[in-house]
Design a protein around this nucleic acid. Structure first.
Length: 593
RNA sequence: GCGGUCGUAGUCUAGCCUGGUUUAGGACAUCAGCCUGCCACGUUGACGACCCGGGUUCAAAUCCCGGCGACCGCACCA
């Protein structure tokens, strides 16, 4: 318990939160009966509900309010998808181990530092080449000058085969984003061929972390909320910008980070865009939304910041990245969301790999007149000249660049179509004027990506409070896993029956309710505070007389008295943030023991 | 993966060094009563543990080895 735990020197919030979480059923490490497995957690009843509530906040913010489309795709993904996306190449690291001191190093980093090999060069090398390069440059262990073991690749994606066929390699997705990109064409149609539009997916992702630690902060299986927002790079304006312009973003710039400065500077969204700190309006918009999301789950603005990623820290697909970080007691700043400008990288890669056309068509406001040279083979002349090869010749010419044909005919007096010599009189050169009404292009993407488990953790940590040696979880009311507790003051004289009635009334209204009649009333309040239940309804003898009850506030422990019949409406308003606790009834004088 | 520290009921912990004293002790939580007119009251009782495997020994929670897991540091974290 918190009371004893506090006197312990090793006490910190992380430990306390994890302990409470396990005890009260928010989450715990999975597979405990088999000794546990690192990087996997089970969310218990309260945790599962809290997590859903947080994820529903994301939905409310993006799906409901902005009309972002939500999809759900599979975790297991054919290998080609992640070959195209670049993950197969980038999600593994060549590592060497010093055979003397056993320290492990990234082989490519060693080559960059001691072998004067550029990072792009080092990245392209295979294991043999790396081994060779290490030897050639006589790279030794920087710690103890020992020799290295042969380099090995460590792939951080979970690999499997799809069906019984060894050749059908599949991976557990390390992000939900690719599930959106691969379905782009269909989604674009469903969005009725209009940009901009966004698609979100909240689901599990897998990363075979070398050493997952830190509880919920780094898991091997976790929930990610990836939002891919597609827009026309020539029309990059964000239509909701005015809603967030004045929102202040605390930003730690890459150039300051390189000077080892931790100084964030506060800019409004508007300024950040004007000064070019954030390059995309949509990205700035989503950063502002992310800040609001975190505030809504209980993290004050002063404990949030955005850091710009250094070039080598950025994901392979990103042209500008910011991490949203939240301050937690144990580890300092931890990432809760990433904001990447993915440009057209992913769609372009899938186009190349799959052959599917993922461009969208854009009509110009006014059609553009374009002059185009065309070559028309005159079959009447080609026929007699080439006999049965004439068809083939015509085909070659139609595949060739008309400009080149014209140029050759003009300069040399003939044109070589493969092995065939074409004379000017065998073709008709024309300049054709066409009205080009639009063009095809690959949309750009900005991606906000939230780690659901980390949001969950920070919500828990920020809700954690100690008041008079009692623990309470002060969740914002909109994410509280349980809405109201219902308590008969005593378990006799008809109070239980009355309480049961009220319980039924409120569950039918859709509230999540915890009914508790065991132990003293104080104990039940304490239990409820620890589960983060914002309101408690107590049924006492006056209830039987005048049909009123008391509502108790978790955070202030104050009580108001009100009519049972008003409860449903009052509670609905309270949980939608349209009524405050003190407005729900007549305040009762503080009751002490 | 490496090094250090550690692993006893739901939670926290005593015992381990120096093997037998233990039917493994306590606190809190939980459950069933009694009590109780608003903040972990009191009281009676109940439930409940030596991470897993092997070894040493007449005897292992205790000593040794291996595994798993946790925390810290190193490395890693697109």
């Amino acid at each position: 318990m918190a009371i004893e735990a506090k006197s312990d020197k090793s006490w910190d919030k992380f430990t306390a939160v994890n302990e409470l979480a396990r005890r009260r059923g928010f989450f715990w490490q999975s597979f405990e009966i088999y000794g546990g497995a690192g990087g996997f957690v089970t969310y218990g009843p309260l945790g599962a509900r809290l997590k859903q509530n947080i994820e529903n906040k994301i939905r409310e913010l993006f799906v409901t309010r902005l009309g972002i489309l939500e999809i759900e795709s599979s975790v297991i993904t054919p290998g080609r998808v992640f070959e195209a996306s670049g993950h197969v190449d980038h999600f593994k690291e060549p590592m060497v181990e010093c055979s003397n001191c056993k320290k492990r190093f990234r082989a490519d980093h060693l080559l960059e530092e001691y072998g004067k090999i550029s990072s792009s060069e080092a990245e392209k090398m295979n294991l043999k080449e790396i081994a060779g390069a290490l030897e050639k440059n006589s790279v030794k262990c920087p710690e103890c000058s020992g020799m290295f073991s042969p380099p090995q690749q460590f792939l951080t994606m979970f690999e499997t085969t799809i069906g019984p066929y060894a050749g059908a390699v599949g991976y557990g997705r390390p992000e939900a984003a690719q599930g959106i990109f691969v379905e782009f064409n269909r989604l674009y149609t469903i969005a009725r061929d209009k940009l901009p539009f966004g698609v979100i997916q909240i689901g599990h992702a897998l990363r075979n972390e070398i050493s997952p630690r830190q509880g919920l902060i780094r898991l091997r299986e976790f929930t990610i909320a990836d939002l891919e927002f597609f827009f026309d790079p020539e029309a990059p304006e964000c239509r909701y910008l005015d809603e967030v312009e004045e929102e202040v973003l605390p930003i730690l710039l890459a150039k300051n980070r390189q000077e080892r400065s931790e100084e964030t500077f506060e800019v409004s969204v508007k300024e950040a865009l004007q000064k070019g700190i954030v390059r995309s309006e949509w990205q700035a918009f989503f950063m502002a939304m992310a800040k609001r999301l975190l505030m809504e789950i209980g993290v004050p603005a002063k404990n949030q910041r955005f850091i710009e990623k250094l070039p080598w820290e950025k994901a392979h697909y990103s042209s500008q990245s910011f991490d949203q970080e939240v301050y937690v007691e144990r580890w300092g700043w931890i990432e809760v969301s990433g904001h990447a400008y993915r440009t057209d990288y992913d769609l372009d890669s899938h186009m190349k790999k799959s052959g599917a056309d993922m461009r969208v068509y854009k009509e110009f406001e006014t059609p553009v007149e374009e002059e185009q040279k065309t070559v028309k083979p005159l079959m009447a002349r080609l026929g007699p000249a080439f006999k049965k090869d004439a068809g083939k010749v015509a085909e070659i010419m139609q595949g060739a660049d008309p400009e080149e044909i014209a140029k050759s005919l003009a300069e040399k007096g003939y044109y070589m179509a493969g092995d065939y010599k074409i004379m000017p009189e065998q073709v008709e050169l024309k300049v054709q004027k066409t009205a080009v009404r639009g063009k095809r292009f690959v949309p750009h993407v900005v991606e906000p990506s939230f780690g659901s488990d980390r949001l969950f953790y920070v919500a828990l940590e920020y809700a954690y409070q100690v008041k008079d040696d009692r623990v309470l979880l002060s969740f914002p009311r909109s994410i509280a896993p349980t809405h109201v507790g219902i308590y008969p003051l005593l378990s006799k004289d008809g109070l239980v029956e009355k309480a049961t009635e009220i319980r039924k009334l409120l569950t039918q209204e859709g509230f999540t309710v915890e009914y508790d009649e065991t132990g003293s009333i104080g104990r039940r309040y304490a239990r409820a505070d620890e589960a983060g239940i914002p309101l408690g309804i107590t049924i006492d003898y006056d209830t039987l007389k005048d049909r009123t009850i008391t509502i108790r506030d978790r955070d202030s422990w104050q009580q108001v008295r009100t009519q049972i019949k008003d409860l449903p409406e009052l509670l609905h308003k309270y949980f939608r943030g349209k009524k405050e606790f003190m407005e729900m009834g007549r305040l009762l004088p503080a009751q002490g023991s």
